Amino acid sequence: MRGNTLAIGLASLLLLATLEAQGFEDGEDWKGPLRLGKKKVDYLHFYFHDMFDAKNPTPLIVAEANITQSSPTLFGMVRVMDQPLTEGPNLTSKMIGKAQGIFASVSQT
């Protein structure tokens, strides 16, 4: 359960960071060196499937600290992931991509 919350929070944070990196408001002219004009707004909708209890789990633990198992936040755990992104909430819906990468539990509290 703790891992699911962590993965969802991480995915949300990464998406937010990507959107915030744009650096300009909706409809504002972007006067950068490429002179791209007005920003186009697109909305992405996808479902991130974090399968910890599956036959082939999508996140795998690759390292952990000596205190990880006694930590309420799993501090020191490092996982790698390869998870499907789908159009709908069911795994049987059309796969539109994959979320791949590394995440770590870094909060002690």
Rank of each mutant, 00 (worst) to 15 (best):
S93H: 08
M77N: 01
E20N: 10
T92P: 00
V78E: 08
S71R: 12
D53E: 13
G9Y: 10
M95F: 03
I61F: 03
N90S: 14
K40H: 05
I102T: 13
A104D: 02
G9A: 14
A63E: 11
F52I: 09
G101L: 04
K98E: 00
E87H: 06
L91R: 12
S107I: 10
G88H: 07
D26Y: 12
L74S: 05
A104Q: 06
L14S: 13
T73R: 09
D42Q: 12
G23Q: 04
E87L: 15
Y43S: 09
G9M: 07
A104C: 05
L74N: 02
D50N: 07
T18W: 09
I8C: 08
K55V: 07
Q69I: 09
L74T: 02
G76Y: 05
K98N: 01
A63Q: 11
P89K: 11
G97H: 13
M77S: 03
V80D: 00
L85M: 14
P59F: 06
Y43N: 08
S93G: 06
K55Q: 10
D26E: 12
G101P: 00
S12H: 13
F103G: 05
K40I: 09
L60T: 06
G88D: 06
G101V: 04
S71K: 13
T86P: 01
T109M: 06
A99Y: 03
V106D: 08
G76E: 03
R79N: 10
M1I: 13
M95Q: 14
T68C: 14
L74H: 06
A54C: 05
F75S: 00
L15N: 11
D29M: 12
L6N: 03
K94Q: 14
N90Q: 11
L91A: 06
G37T: 10
D42Y: 15
F48Q: 01
T86C: 04
A21Y: 02
Q100F: 00
Q22T: 15
I61Q: 08
G23A: 04
A54L: 03
D53C: 07
G3F: 11
L85S: 06
R79F: 03
P57D: 02
T5V: 13
T109N: 11
S70Y: 08
E64I: 11
R35A: 14
Q83I: 04
G97E: 12
L91G: 14
G37E: 05
A11G: 02
H45D: 11
K38T: 04
S12K: 14
E28P: 00
D50T: 03
V80P: 00
E28W: 04
V41S: 04
P59Q: 05
I67T: 14
T73Y: 06
A17H: 09
F46C: 11
K94I: 11
G97P: 05
N56S: 11
V62W: 01
G32K: 03
A21W: 02
F103S: 05
D50C: 02
E87P: 04
L6S: 05
T58Q: 00
G23E: 03
S12G: 12
K31H: 08
H45I: 12
V41W: 01
T18C: 09
S12F: 08
Q69Y: 05
P72E: 01
E87I: 15
I96N: 01
